[in-house]
């Protein structure tokens, strides 16, 4: 479980690692919009190529990408199968009421490619950006929301603290589980009700401990003069660099390319 949550960031020295987290976040959002705006294979090829390029540029081993792919492969396959039966055009196979058509095949290929692109892009972001940089980037991007009285700083601080304490609490959960097992707690057998009941001896101590830690932390933060976001400076100042500018230019071309391909070539997807 710990690996799923925290094995994400991969230390490397790549161009993508060097990019500003804000730029990466903006690109990710734009990229997601773009992949859903591709209506033929030519247009779709552009983000697919971009995904491969990103994977290579990030200098993160392909194995890592494949590993994370494994977790959602079932979802991908099920989506692909459902889409097979959905769509018009030439009928290839007919079993009773359902039929596999040319449109269906096209649809499922497009859907699979889109999901893969989406996955690779977001993986690239988390592989190349530390969680703290990510929180920082989100905080700064969302700053305008302050005007709407949304407590951006507080939310970001909560995320920072959560990132800090999740591993600690996971470790604690392990320890408590072992301790209750040593007292003969049986967590691996029985029906749902019995299993749910078996969680009580784990959750109560965990909850108590989390509260205790929160109180301690609040005290420690106060000792270090924490008083909210007002008048607070930051050690790390985010600055857009040449890499980011280059990224913006490249991305503009990609967007233009996709739009042109969409306009001038026939649509094969709805």
């Amino acid at each position: 479980m710990r690996d799923i949550v925290f094995g994400q960031y991969v230390q490397q020295k790549s161009i993508i690692h060097l990019m500003d987290p804000r730029a990466k976040l903006i690109f990710l959002v734009a990229y997601i919009v773009l992949i859903f705006c591709t209506f033929n294979f030519y247009a779709l090829a552009v983000p697919v190529i971009l995904a491969v390029v990103m994977m290579l540029l990030s200098k993160v081993s392909i194995g890592k990408y494949l590993k994370s792919l494994k977790m959602i492969i079932v979802v991908v396959i099920i989506t692909a199968i459902f889409n097979l039966f959905y769509g018009g055009g030439q009928v290839f196979l007919k079993i009773g009421p359902i039929s596999i058509t040319e449109g269906g095949i096209n649809n499922s290929i497009v859907i699979v490619l889109r999901i893969l692109c989406l996955l690779i892009a977001s993986e690239t972001l988390t592989f190349t950006t530390t969680p703290t940089d990510l929180t920082d980037g989100i905080e700064r991007l969302l700053k305008p929301l302050k005007l709407l009285h949304i407590k951006v700083h507080e939310i970001a601080m909560m995320m920072t603290i959560a990132l800090r304490f999740v591993p600690t609490l996971l470790e604690e959960t392990d320890k408590i589980m072992l301790a209750q097992k040593a007292r003969g707690a049986d967590m691996d057998s029985g029906g749902i009700v019995k299993r749910a009941k078996a969680l009580v001896p784990i959750f109560i101590p965990l909850f108590v401990s989390a509260i205790r830690r929160a109180m301690d932390l609040a005290m420690a933060m106060e000792c270090r003069c924490y008083h909210g976001g007002e008048g607070r400076t930051r050690m790390k100042t985010l600055r857009f660099s040449r890499v980011d500018v280059f990224g913006f230019i490249l991305f503009s071309f990609v967007t233009a390319g996709i739009i042109l391909l969409d306009i001038f070539l026939p649509h094969i997807v709805r």
């Binding site: 320890k175 001896p201 108590v208 401990s209």
Partner: peptide
């Protein structure tokens, strides 16, 4: 088995 800081297992 009594773990370190066993009071954290009371529930």
């Amino acid at each position: 088995m009594v773990f370190q800081y066993p009071e954290y297992q009371l529930f």
